[in-house]
């Protein structure tokens, strides 16, 4: 089976903490921080290391502060 690894990078200083990404994430990777950024918003952070790189969070992010990577490693074919 292919191994999928994703990664999100959130520009935390620009995040406005609207939480739309948190709801959009099917893996519950994201959560809201308990501290605030320079704008005064509690920003979104990665709470778990289980991102699949589906990019739903980035799609719904109004402020375009999320960058997403997705690495798919195909499993080597097994000899039959």
């Amino acid at each position: 089976m292919a191994k999928v690894q994703g990664e999100v990078i959130i520009d935390l200083e620009k995040c406005k903490g609207c939480e739309l990404c948190i709801i959009a994430c099917p893996e519950e990777t994201l959560a809201i921080a308990n501290i605030i950024n320079k704008k005064g918003y509690r920003y979104a952070i990665k709470a778990q290391d289980n991102c699949t790189g589906c990019a739903n969070c980035a799609l719904v992010c109004p402020d375009a502060v999320i960058t997403v990577y997705r690495k798919v490693e195909k499993a080597p074919k097994q000899a039959v």
Binding site: E7, A64, T67, V68, R70, K71
Partner: peptide, 12 residues
């Protein structure tokens, strides 16, 4: 190992 241009799926 993941944050490489070839694996980029979304950016501003």
């Amino acid at each position: 190992n993941i944050c490489l241009p070839e694996f980029l799926v979304y950016e501003r």
